[in-house]
């Protein structure tokens, strides 16, 4: 039995310790906002925040994260998240939307550390999050728009 801290709540799970966090979230806990896209740390669809850092849950054995702070798209809160999600909605960013939970988590991680990212910062921070609908142009614009609504000092 492992105790996980997911979205600020303790959750006990009885699973193969080698099972990637992605499948624990989706199949065991029903948190399906975290998506499967490649299973190999190549696409970012499975992004969660681990202690505030955007992390690929598809290659993360669940035993490695017991007791650490895991935030999924369902539990994402706070002023940066609000700014990002509002900018996403106002910018009509989503198409199929399948990548967007991961994109939002990556964007929130970026803006939390760097409230005024340059285009190069965005390329570096978001390059691991694939969008097959290629909404990148709007993601970039929405990231800048969200940044403009946040205080310049780290949020």
């Amino acid at each position: 039995m492992l105790t996980l801290n997911i979205n600020d709540r303790p959750v006990d799970v009885d699973v193969d310790p080698a099972m990637p966090l992605l499948w624990v979230l989706r199949d065991v806990l029903g948190l399906t906002g975290t998506k499967y896209g490649c299973g190999a740390a190549l696409c970012g669809a499975c992004t969660v925040q681990l202690n505030g850092q955007a992390t690929r849950s598809c290659v993360l054995p669940v035993s490695a994260v017991a007791g650490q702070r895991i935030t999924t798209i369902e539990g994402l809160t706070g002023p940066v998240a609000l700014a990002v999600q509002n900018a996403w909605i106002q910018g009509n960013v989503v198409q199929c939307g399948y990548c967007q939970g991961g994109q939002v988590l990556a964007a929130v991680t970026l803006l939390t550390a760097n409230p005024r990212p340059t285009d190069a910062d965005i390329d570096a921070a978001m390059g691991g999050n694939v969008c097959r609908c290629a909404t990148y142009y709007r993601i970039r614009a929405a990231l800048h728009a969200a940044a403009r609504t946040l205080p310049e000092a780290s949020a």
Binding site: K35, Y36, I73, E74, N92, V94, G97, Q100
Partner: peptide, 19 residues
């Protein structure tokens, strides 16, 4: 006009076939 599926998809709440 905002897309109707924008909020749910931005918040991870849209159910897809795989979900």
């Amino acid at each position: 006009l905002p897309r109707l599926d924008g909020p749910a998809k931005t918040r991870g709440r849209e159910p897809y076939g795989i979900d």
